[in-house]
């Protein structure tokens, strides 16, 4: 019985002290929560975006280093006026040259694969369109051509607008709006012409 009481007491005491050690003070909790919230407020980076950034960084860096992916810490910190991205990654081991080259090569092959698949899909779609009845495909192509023409026209208009604006900003002094040719011919004649026209 006595033993039991003592061990219970001992355990309770131990538990009490452990709790005191482990529990983060209210002030520390507040500070940490505030830091996170303020970073989000200041940068418009939501936790989801931060997580995405973290994932992409891990992917990028793991080509060169073998690291503890779960222990990677990503924090934005404010030091004075400057904001800094603090990245702490426990590196398990540096990769060999061969391994790095291998990883890079793998990635390249992946990229080429992606490209090829994209090309394939486009080719397939083209084939499909060709398979369709000839009239439809012709119509489609005509539509496309029309669209492209329209775009060109719009672009031309835009360019014209720009030139017009430029002209408005820096109007040439003596040129009358109606006869553009007068630029080439003698100015004196043009000046004489203008008042006549106005009259």
């Amino acid at each position: 019985m006595r033993d039991n009481i003592f061990t219970e007491l001992y355990n309770k005491l131990l538990g009490f002290f452990r709790q005191a050690e482990e529990e983060e003070s209210a002030k520390d909790v507040a500070c940490n929560r505030l830091r996170v919230v303020l970073m989000q407020d200041r940068t418009n980076l939501t936790p989801q975006l931060l997580e995405k950034m973290r994932g992409e960084l891990v992917e990028l860096l793991s080509k060169y280093l073998e690291m503890d992916k779960d222990a990677l810490e990503l924090n934005l910190e404010q030091e004075g006026d400057q904001m800094a991205l603090m990245l702490s990654i426990p590196v398990i081991r540096a990769k060999d040259e061969e391994e790095i080259e291998k990883a890079l090569a793998e990635e390249e092959s992946k990229e080429t694969e992606l490209e090829s698949t994209e090309q394939e899909t486009t080719e397939e779609s083209q084939e499909e369109s060709q398979e369709k009845s000839g009239e439809e495909s012709q119509e489609e192509s005509e539509e496309i051509i029309e669209d492209s023409i329209k775009e060109n026209i719009i672009e031309d208009n835009l360019e014209k607008d720009k030139t017009i604006k430029k002209v408005k900003k820096f109007p040439d002094k003596e040129i009358c709006g109606e006869c553009r040719e007068c630029e080439l011919s003698d100015d004196i004649e043009c000046e004489k012409k203008n008042p006549k026209k106005k009259e």
């Binding site: 003070s25 209210a26 002030k27 500070c31 505030l34 303020l38 404010q78 004075g80 006026d81």
Partner: peptide
């Protein structure tokens, strides 16, 4: 409250807001 670590200290606030 600051002494008992229940409230953020002056230094904490100044550091957070810089």
């Amino acid at each position: 409250l600051i002494k008992s670590k229940d409230m953020m200290s002056v230094e904490d606030v100044v550091e957070i807001l810089s």
